[in-house]
């Protein structure tokens, strides 16, 4: 039962493996693409990764609480549809702010519906959020049936081109999230989150408000998905009711690579953010390694599977070794 040092370290810092992987991916990428470290290149990469980073944070919080959220991609699409239709290409900045607030509330509302079904009606999270995802993507199509609309270029320019002290905007967003997360981890809510995901029965016996905590994770996830939707809209500058769909599975992949197990009660948000960056870097590596066209999808998937399987392989080898 005695733990190895590696186990102890990964327990304390669940993102450790992801960080290692990031170092490898980043090194390989930088070798293939020497200008990766230039602020503009870094910025152009990070602004593409940011929507997934934000969505993965929400997903990770749900997963820590012992659930899963299949509807995050659809919530991103709804947000995108709201922004593209309500702000418009020539909208002014103050309405844009109001509409963004509305979009965030909509995301939280969608999360609240998920939370209601899972925490209070006790429905299976994976089925429930899969089902609600159709409600949300249907809503997105209703708001924006045909691709179009958009947000003013001043807004997209701010998102795309803001670099402060050599660091892209995305870094400050990430830093802010880490700061807030560090604070949450030091509150009772943070403890409850892990207790509920770890062993809900024990948490209930001890007096933790299990349902309220489960409910809250979905609201947070809806909020983060809406934030991701805003980032996505500022990246593309236009509306498309299906823009968020691929983010759902990527967010789960990112969370798992980032050391958040599907079984709940462990992990954090730093790992999933790193996981999202890794997924993006892998695409870069494939691009810059000049992988033959017909192999690109295969190699991309193979590297992801390898990244997911590595902790398992390490454990297997360790067990054999014993």
């Amino acid at each position: 039962m005695k733990q190895s040092r590696w186990q102890q370290a990964t327990y304390r810092h669940p993102y450790l493996f992801a960080l290692l992987l990031l170092a490898v991916a980043f090194t390989v990428n930088a070798l293939l693409q020497p200008n990766l470290l230039e602020p503009t290149t870094l910025n152009s990469n990070m602004r593409v990764f940011l929507p997934l980073i934000l969505v993965a944070v929400g997903q990770a919080i749900v997963m820590i609480g012992g659930g899963i959220d299949i509807s995050v991609g659809s919530i991103v699409s709804v947000t995108n549809a709201i922004l593209a239709t309500q702000i418009g290409l020539s909208g002014d900045l103050s309405t844009a702010g109001v509409i963004m607030g509305v979009a965030l509330l909509a995301g939280m509302g969608a999360g609240a519906l998920n939370g209601l079904c899972v925490a209070y009606l006790r429905l299976q999270p994976i089925i429930t959020t899969f089902a609600t995802s159709f409600i949300y993507s249907g809503l997105a199509l209703f708001i924006l049936p045909n691709p179009g609309g958009g947000v003013p270029s001043r807004l997209t320019a701010f998102y795309r081109e803001t670099i402060i002290l050599w660091l892209p905007l995305a870094f400050y967003v990430i830093a802010l999230i880490l700061l807030i997360w560090a604070a949450i981890r030091r509150t009772r809510y943070g403890r409850y989150l892990y207790a509920v995901g770890g062993k809900a029965d024990a948490a209930y016996e001890t007096g933790v408000p299990v349902r309220a905590v489960q409910f809250s994770t979905y609201v947070i996830s809806g909020f983060m998905a809406a934030l991701g939707g805003i980032a996505m809209t500022l990246l593309t500058g236009s509306g498309n009711a299906q823009v968020g769909d691929p983010l759902t599975l990527s967010s789960i992949t990112a969370a798992v690579i980032g050391g958040t197990p599907l079984s709940g009660g462990a992990g954090g948000v730093a790992g999933p953010m790193i996981g999202a960056i890794i997924l993006g870097l892998i695409r870069n590596i494939i691009s810059f390694a000049n992988v033959a066209t017909w192999w690109q999808t295969f190699v991309n998937a193979a590297i992801i599977v390898l990244a997911l399987a590595t902790p398992g392989i390490i454990n297997l080898v360790r067990r054999r070794n014993r």
Binding site: Y194, A195, G198, E205, G265
Partner: peptide, 12 residues
Amino acid sequence: ELSLVPQMTVAE
């Protein structure tokens, strides 16, 4: 039947 959360620390 133990009422501890295995993933959390002793203090937690």
